[in-house]
Design a protein around this nucleic acid. Structure first.
Lengths: 212, 212
DNA sequence: TAGATTGTTAATCGATTAACAATC
DNA sequence: TAGATTGTTAATCGATTAACAATC
């Protein structure tokens, strides 16, 4: 396996979009795909695609491109998406429902095995065949389920408390959809998803479009 | 108003998190906040915060920091969040519900005034007091509502078609939550939100944590 | 063969970080 | 006053892009 330090954060963020294009090509029966074609599709520079794909270690054939199947496997392997990652989701609201119903995550190794909610009206229900448990049962359940990832979709006000609970229960990675900057012990991974950032970028683009 | 070319994309993406911290300080009655404090809170470098805040044009006082109220106003103004942006959401699923129920967007100038869905069982319902209309009525409705932004939360398979419909109806900006790279005429803004990117970053961090 | 595409090395570009005088 | 923080200019760092020989 290739050393991972060669992959920059921007490269890692682009990999899923490459994978998407390559998997489409596979579905259409292509055996090879060139960096040029991928770049065209995503409106990127061919050189950037080539550079990015180099981190997979897959070598392409000049004039022909990269072997589709090998490339897909290599990206999965690079991202460890060929392995099963068990996760729980904290806060069983509409965002949780959206994430649990996103088939791409399942295909890419993320199994959300249960949800937790403080609202007892939600407890006992199922979301996409997965149980909703009470927050109080979180400690025991997470250990029993063996989940190492927690996805936080709780209201901001309880985000820090929820993070502390899941960490106490043995979770080592948190995918944080709240707008709270979590304080966690060292060794705990936090990946923050920030919708406001996207909205800010959109806003500035709109401002520029409308002159000034 | 300051020239906007001074703001880089990374800077724009960080502005909302600064705003979040500064608004918290305001709520606690602070009149000034220093770049150092903001940096501490967000685990960033003070110099980076100062540089970023410089784009607002607000000058701070050495030893004391930046005037909280002015800073908030300037960030709102910079992002045009002090203005009302009417939007419709296409695809009235759980992700749409999550976005419509996110109070921060409303406060920041984004009014989602209606949703559209192809499923007639959803048509006629309300989500957070906003109507769900039929996809067929999209053309007339969007013009009547005066919405210039469309938020796409439809299944990938119909994303391109939905984009074309909203553009035909006069929408000039699309906030795209599907994993489809949309093909749009020049002059149309597309901001793509990619959850898989975030998951890829999380996955790589996890891989590194577990050695190798 | 001819020419499009690869992989690599070097050049450029832009963002982050450092240094430091000014100042409240 | 003393010292923390600002704003600016310069240095560094890292990512993107360019150039080009190798090759299928």
């Amino acid at each position: 396996m290739r050393p991972s330090k060669l992959a920059s954060l921007p490269t890692i963020k682009r990999l899923p979009s490459y994978l998407h294009v390559i998997e489409n090509a596979e579905r259409e029966g292509a055996e090879f795909i060139s960096g040029t074609v991928i770049a065209d599709e995503l409106e990127l520079e061919p050189i950037q695609v080539r550079k990015d794909l180099a981190i997979t270690g897959i070598v392409g054939k000049p004039r022909i491109g990269f072997p589709v199947q090998e490339l897909i496997d290599a990206i999965y392997s690079f991202l460890h998406w060929d392995q099963d990652h068990k996760a729980v989701i904290i806060g069983a609201g509409s965002l949780a429902t959206a994430l649990m119903g996103y088939p791409e995550f399942t295909r890419r190794g993320l199994s959300i095995v249960a949800a937790f909610d403080a609202d007892e009206k939600k407890v006992g229900r199922e979301i996409y065949q997965k149980p909703v448990y009470a927050m109080e049962s979180l400690g025991d359940r997470i250990e029993a389920l063996g989940a190492r990832i927690a996805i936080l979709t709780v209201p901001s006000a309880v985000a820090q408390a929820a993070a502390e609970q899941v960490i106490a229960a043995g979770v080592t990675s948190i995918w944080n959809f709240t707008n709270v900057k979590l304080k966690v012990p060292s060794g705990i991974i936090v990946q923050k998803e920030d919708l406001s950032s996207g909205y800010a970028v959109l806003s500035v683009k709109i401002r520029k479009l409308h002159g000034e």
